Deep mutational scan, measured.
Amino acid sequence: DHDVVPEDKFQETLHLKEKEGCPQAFHALLSWLLTQDSTAILDFWRVLFKDYNLERYGRLQPILDSFPKDVDLSQPRKGRKPPAVPKALVPPPRLPTKRKASEEARAAAPAALTPRGTASPGSQLKAKPPKKPESSAEQQRLPLGNGIQTMSASVQRAVAMSSGDVPGARGAVEGILIQQVFESGGSKKCIQVGGEFYTPSKFEDSGSGKNKARSSSGPKPLVRAKGAQGAAPGGGEARLGQQGSVPAPLALPSDPQLHQKNEDECAVCRDGGELICCDGCPRAFHLACLSPPLREIPSGTWRCSSCLQATVQEVQPRAEEPRPQEPPVETPLPPGLRSAGEEVRGPPGEPLAGMDTTLVYKHLPAPPSAAPLPGLDSSALHPLLCVGPEGQQNLAPGARCGVCGDGTDVLRCTHCAAAFHWRCHFPAGTSRPGTGLRCRSCSGDVTPAPVEGVLAPSPARLAPGPAKDDTASHEPALHRDDLESLLSEHTFDGILQWAIQSMARPAAPFPS
């Protein structure tokens, strides 16, 4: 592969990997390779389809078979030569091979799209000592099968071997295949498990690692696999990028399955594409389908809103127990993405979901129960707010008499603000006073009005108090039968009158 990737590009890729991570280095090298001529790309395919690569990765054979028959990708048995050289000459001794072996032994695996480039050397060096003999053996194999790289107009793939297949390693990572398949204008990513390549439709969760975000852009890794992070704060999961590491605690105790298979379609829109997988259930989501939507993949363990709600429900009964003089119970939860139609709101002032922060849900004790107040519409209280300059209440639009249902020339009671006709409430011909108009209920007259088809109010509507207090003497005590009587009149003013009279009014101040 030294004929494909020059030394300066190799060093530039290593520097970019240390600065921005393996995914960015892979993407940059792939983009550079696509700008080369067809001879360089053909050399790339020839390096990929060597015999030892085909033996190690069985899924490469179907890719090789898909090439046109007129494309010669065979390799000479006596060494490598550029395709432009007409004579089959043995190339001179390859010093770059020693360079590659020494550099890969030092860096474990470079971040390139060629056999030198995919593992994360920093994480491997940190986690190597417990498994040094086995990992050293794996390093000797890295130059042979560490990076199976493929690129063409139909298929483009980048393979990364790992030393996680050490025997006896619980939940060992089998390997990473960062794979971009450009077929019919689409893009897919796969993962390699035990020599087999699994596409998103049959993606397997190998051991402790999972394909957290099938994305090839942005600074985030394709698999949430930063070796420096180790395990999740809650004892979460091992990262795919942690090559040759000792077994780590796999999943939280509440995880239903340690080796679950995540779905390959969004649980909201039932469509495929780039998904984020939940650590607590097999569901996966688009970032845009979450509520609120996320802009980037959160670091650490992530769970959907259903799993978060289940966790909150487990903690909430203990938080609601009476604990005198104790601060509110704080339950730190990872930043969760909410699927459509589901929402768990945190306290005000918290950062938005999706940031690399930890939301704190506070379970406050329930407030003391209070008697429910009568629910009145805002339009129902409008007549009470229509007060004239002299303190006389004006008529609201649409006000109707509670007896006849007519809204023409209605009066407004100064005591309960109900609309009424003087002739309907006082049919006996009582003279109307000039000021202080009161309806039949507030004036103490319980004589029913002779209106055909309208039920008369119940005599129990009024329960006047002592006459010594004029204001308190007109406080009506309405009961269920009074409400039914008012409802039978089918008037809004009657219902409003009952609601206003049912509310307690402050006692009249004593004259000074």
Rank of each mutant, 00 (worst) to 15 (best):
G241K: 13
Q242I: 12
Q243E: 08
S245L: 10
A248G: 15
P249V: 14
P256T: 14
P256H: 13
L258Q: 08
Q260F: 11
K261A: 04
K261R: 12
E265P: 06
C266G: 05
V268F: 14
V268C: 11
G273A: 09
L275Q: 14
L275P: 09
I276A: 07
C277G: 07
D279A: 13
P282G: 05
R283N: 05
S291Y: 12
S291A: 14
P292H: 04
E296D: 15
T301M: 11
W302M: 14
C304A: 15
S305R: 13
S306P: 12
C307L: 12
C307G: 14
L308G: 11
A310R: 07
Q313G: 12
Q313H: 14
E314L: 12
R318F: 12
A319S: 10
E320D: 09
E321Q: 09
P322Y: 15
P322G: 11
P327G: 12
P328N: 07
P328H: 12
T331D: 02
G336R: 07
L337R: 05
R338T: 07
G341T: 09
G341D: 02
E350I: 09
A353K: 11
M355S: 07
T357V: 13
V360D: 04
V360N: 11
K362T: 08
H363C: 14
L364M: 02
P368L: 06
P368G: 12
S369Q: 05
A371R: 10
P374K: 08
D377F: 11
S378H: 08
L385M: 03
V387D: 06
E390T: 06
Q393K: 12
N394W: 14
P397Y: 10
G398R: 05
A399S: 05
A399W: 15
A399Q: 07
R400F: 06
T408K: 14
V410Q: 03
L411Y: 07
C416D: 04
C416A: 00
C416S: 01
A417T: 05
A418T: 05
A419S: 10
F420C: 03
R432V: 04
T435E: 04
T435S: 09
C439R: 02
C442T: 02
A449V: 13
P450Q: 09
G453R: 09
S458C: 13
A463T: 07
P466G: 14
P466Y: 12
A467C: 11
T471G: 09
A472R: 08
S473A: 14
P476C: 03
P476L: 07
P476T: 08
L483K: 03
S485F: 13
L487V: 04
H490T: 14
D493L: 00
D493V: 01
G494N: 10
I495S: 01
Q497H: 13
A499R: 03
Q501S: 04
R505M: 11
P506Q: 03
A507E: 05
P509Q: 09
P509G: 09
